[in-house]
Computed example of a mutant assay.
Amino acid sequence: MYVAAKGGERAIEAAHDWLADARRGPTDRPAIDTDAIADQLSLGVARVMAEGSLYDPQLAALAIKQARGDLIEAVFLIRAYRTTLPRFGATEPVDTAAMQAARRVSATFKDVPGGQLLGPTFDYTHRLLDFRLLADGALPPAPGQPADADPQPVPHVLGYLDRDGMIEPAADTGTEPADLTRAPLELPANRALRLQALARGDEGFLLGLAYSTQRGYARNHAFVGELRIGTVEIEMFVPEIGEVVGIGEVEMTECETINQFKGSRTEPAQFTRGYGLSFGQTERKALAMALVDRALRWDELGEDFVGAPAQDEEFVLSHCDNIQATGFLEHIKLPHYVDFQAELELVRRLRAGVPDTEEDAA
């Protein structure tokens, strides 16, 4: 016999108390500090800011602490908090060409103006546990560029291809893009809206889609024209003084890919672009974003739809948001007693009219 479990506010309050105890951990150890999270777990903080659509390392660190390290839960907290904030206006478009790059690499050209800046990267590390990190104290500084070096703006690599007409020009529709944080997604979406959705999308989901394009689902072979990470100035037009003023700096990751060329009888062959831009040091996200962006442009570029998941706009944009996905997934953990009892009774009635054995049927 199935019976409905009983509970209520007392059980929920007890669960909250237990959660707080589990989050704190053993009280004989120091509590983890949000400053330490922001400084030492900066990649996790960057992901929460990117997918939460709010640039604030301290709040992202707080969300990670509150969520016990569950980054999707932390993104949920940040998005919920974001809805309570007043909106003062929109900033000017970010000039990534003026980025103070701490990392800037190109997989297509060895010698680029400004040079290759490896920066802080796992690309060349051995994937072996470093047991020195278990010891107290910091590791000795590694030789190389001093931490206080002043990075200089470097030109975009794809600008040199653009100058020679070897790559499609960067599109400028001249219209103000819609704001996905203030209005629901509508399909079909233009490229600006798609890029917003991808920037907020789950990194793991985008990674899987991007990988699928490399394995042949969308015939989308790409070269990384440039990947850069650094700080950019945020500017805003102030009507009271009639001028554009700088209001701060944010760290961003930008990726531009060079993809297979297109052409026609009237137009010479030229490469096409994929683009990704995200808060913080989120290079895996920006790279995956660029690959998926290019795959979604099949119709715009006059290509065939081959049925690849990364080409399907509705599939990609409707499922890349991890908060929406989490809500649908995790709600099935909550009580569904009445629904299940109705299904159970229906199955019992159906079974009542069906013989249990062949002898009963005879």
Rank of each mutant, 00 (worst) to 15 (best):
M1A: 15
A4G: 12
G7P: 01
I12K: 07
T34E: 14
D39H: 05
S42T: 11
L43P: 01
V45F: 04
M49H: 03
G52I: 04
A61I: 05
K65D: 10
K65A: 14
K65Y: 15
D70N: 15
E92H: 07
T108P: 00
K110W: 11
P113G: 07
G114K: 10
G114C: 04
L118M: 11
P120M: 07
H126C: 11
D130I: 05
L133M: 11
L139T: 03
P141L: 02
A142S: 12
P151T: 09
V154K: 13
D164N: 13
T173Q: 06
G174C: 06
P177K: 02
A178Q: 10
P184I: 02
L185Q: 04
Q196L: 06
F205C: 02
L206A: 03
Y211E: 14
S212C: 08
T213G: 03
G225K: 00
E226Q: 08
R228E: 05
V232C: 10
V232E: 01
E243N: 07
G246V: 09
E256T: 13
I258G: 00
N259L: 03
K262M: 07
R265I: 10
T266D: 14
F271S: 12
R273F: 08
G280K: 01
T282E: 04
E283C: 02
M289A: 02
M289H: 08
A290E: 03
W298A: 07
G302C: 02
D304L: 15
A310Y: 01
E314I: 05
D321T: 01
D321P: 03
T326Q: 09
G327F: 13
L329Q: 14
E330I: 11
K333D: 13
K333T: 11
L334F: 14
D339S: 11
F340D: 06
A342P: 00
E343W: 07
L344A: 14
G353P: 00
P355Y: 10
E358M: 15
A361W: 06
